[in-house]
Design a protein around this nucleic acid. Structure first.
Lengths: 129, 129
DNA sequence: TTTGATGCAAATGTTTTGCATGCAA
DNA sequence: TTGCATGCAAAACATTTGCATCAAA
């Protein structure tokens, strides 16, 4: 098991992530935690996000052309990225079917999984354009 | 319509991409073109790749944690990324089914498409580990 | 007292950009 | 001759890392 020491900074990051619904970037986490710990450094934020991600306690969402985002909800689920405002939204999808099997049907390697991100216009941007 | 002037550098980039099967990065393109045009700059490579991508003449593959890769084959198809060697391989998949519809079923925005990348071990790495 | 965590700053890797010059049309 | 394309170098951007210090156990 990991021999991680407690740190109030990490605790604060976890608290913030668990309360957030907006899939914040490292910078958003940094800005928020700084209100409570003005001296926290961005490096510490990145280090803790990486640590939590390695432990499987948070999800990392890597959308093309955007800084990485983080999600406290580690249940398998899919994300939608708005092409206009960049927002990342959870999609209520039960399953996409056996796409790993479909992908591996005529492939000689071993398919272990997939990254899949949907894009388009979020409800806000749809009705505001 | 775009008023693009001919350039031998761009022509060379297109020629290289069209002959390559390995989904090269900008740097790989740069290294290759430099053999013919030793003075070409990396900036020019990036500018031309961006231009060709905007025109829909090449595909840009953005895999997490890797530099972008480019594909001369613009027919819709999926890619596999090897977790061990980083190689990017075309997957012969006809269709993943109507995953955009599935994703949009309980979503109020407009789903226009998806990025989907499969990962695992490529044939080479499978039998060499 | 030991050792992981922090703050700070510098470094990294990829990609973009400003600008003077070159070259296609 | 016009203005897009180039080469070069600097900047931008997100992220990581080295190191001395701090604090949890």
């Amino acid at each position: 098991m990991a021999a991680h020491k407690y740190s109030r900074q990490r605790e604060s990051i976890i608290k913030y992530l668990s309360a957030s619904k907006e899939h914040p970037t490292a910078d958003m986490v940094y800005d928020s935690i700084r209100e409570e710990y003005p001296n926290i450094s961005l490096g510490t934020v990145y280090r803790n996000l990486a640590l939590l991600h390695e432990e499987g306690r948070i999800l990392k969402i890597e959308a093309p052309g955007q800084p990485d985002r983080f999600d406290y909800n580690v249940d398998p689920h899919y994300h939608f990225v708005c092409r206009k405002c960049g927002r990342v939204i959870d999609l209520p999808i039960d399953s996409l079917g056996n796409i790993d099997e479909i992908a591996g049907a005529r492939f000689d390697g071993e398919i272990q999984g997939h990254y899949c991100l949907f894009y388009g216009l979020c409800p806000d941007c749809m009705y505001r354009s």
